[in-house]
């Protein structure tokens, strides 16, 4: 179904190329491995040689003050920085050992495998049903209308939205509430059967109840999907994530299990940020 092949870019090959990466990879398989990842916007360096593994099936939260590089980092994972003029990327991003920036990778295929949800819900100006059906249709995932219906229903159910919209499938996606629209966007990402879902501040435009529903959904999806979430709410990072990575001024300062980061962080900058001591 997917055209991308892991082929000769095996995980062991990666480790041979980056011997340091072998340490710490034994415990959990990594979905993403980033090695010495640097990003430049023109002359400005936004990320400075990031080495970070994103564990498979886990929820990883990226936190840090504005301009720290967390959004730049997450956008590297599915090549969303590609269209930005003057943007230059060094280092490696590996998805299951496959180089995401290799010449033979189709970014459109990559983004189906690595879905993304944004800060502001952005449903297409089409019906609820069309919003979800669009991806599987263009990727040829359904042979018949019935199959497509199944995918739409299953995706809406996984996004915990189906019961609320089952009688409104032909209404415009934009007629739903903000929280419902965000879950519709998650359903749209799920419809093409991704491995990874990237969420860039998915709740910052939502009220607390809608936020809680998204957080509950993240919890349900973890395990089956690898989730990477950028959030400005440290409480949200603490609530939803297994692992937390703290970025500051383009550096990855500290990463570790979320409970450790929020109770006994090692780095003073992490402590300063999560306790609200610098902005």
């Amino acid at each position: 179904m997917r055209t991308m092949s892991v082929a000769d870019r095996t995980r062991s090959g990666v480790i041979a190329e980056f011997p340091d990466a072998a340490a710490g990879t034994a415990a959990k398989p990594a979905a993403f491995e980033t090695r010495e990842l640097s990003v430049f916007y023109g002359k400005k360096q936004a990320l400075k040689g990031i080495n970070l593994d994103i564990d498979k099936g886990e929820v990883t939260a990226l936190i840090g003050p504005s301009g720290c590089g967390k959004s730049t980092y997450i956008r590297c994972l599915n090549r969303m920085n590609d269209p930005i003029p003057g943007c230059r990327i060094e280092g490696k991003v590996l998805l299951d050992g496959m180089d995401v920036y290799a010449a033979d990778i189709d970014p459109v295929e990559l983004r189906a495998r690595v879905g993304m949800v944004f800060q502001k819900p952005n449903p297409f100006p089409k019906s609820v049903w069309e919003n979800v059906a669009y991806g599987p249709r263009i990727h040829g995932l359904a042979a018949t209308r019935a199959e497509l219906n199944d995918i739409v229903e299953r995706s809406l159910q996984r996004a915990a939205l189906f019961d609320e919209v089952k009688d409104r499938l032909q209404e415009p996606g934009t007629s739903l509430s903000g929280g419902q629209q965000q879950r519709l966007c998650i359903a749209r990402a799920l419809a093409v059967d991704p491995d990874v879902i990237l969420m860039d501040e998915p709740c910052s435009a939502l009220d607390p109840i809608a936020t809680a529903k998204i957080e509950e959904l993240i919890d349900e999806l973890s395990g089956n999907y690898t989730i990477v979430i950028v959030t400005h709410s440290m409480q949200q990072a603490a609530r939803v994530s297994d692992m937390t990575a703290f970025f500051h001024l383009g550096d990855l300062v500290e990463t570790g299990p979320t409970d450790t980061i929020f109770t006994t962080p090692r780095d003073e900058r992490t402590e300063g940020y999560i306790t609200g001591r610098f902005g």
Partner: peptide, 9 residues
Amino acid sequence: RQPTAGDLR
């Protein structure tokens, strides 16, 4: 305040 890290301790 939902204290964290040193504040929580």
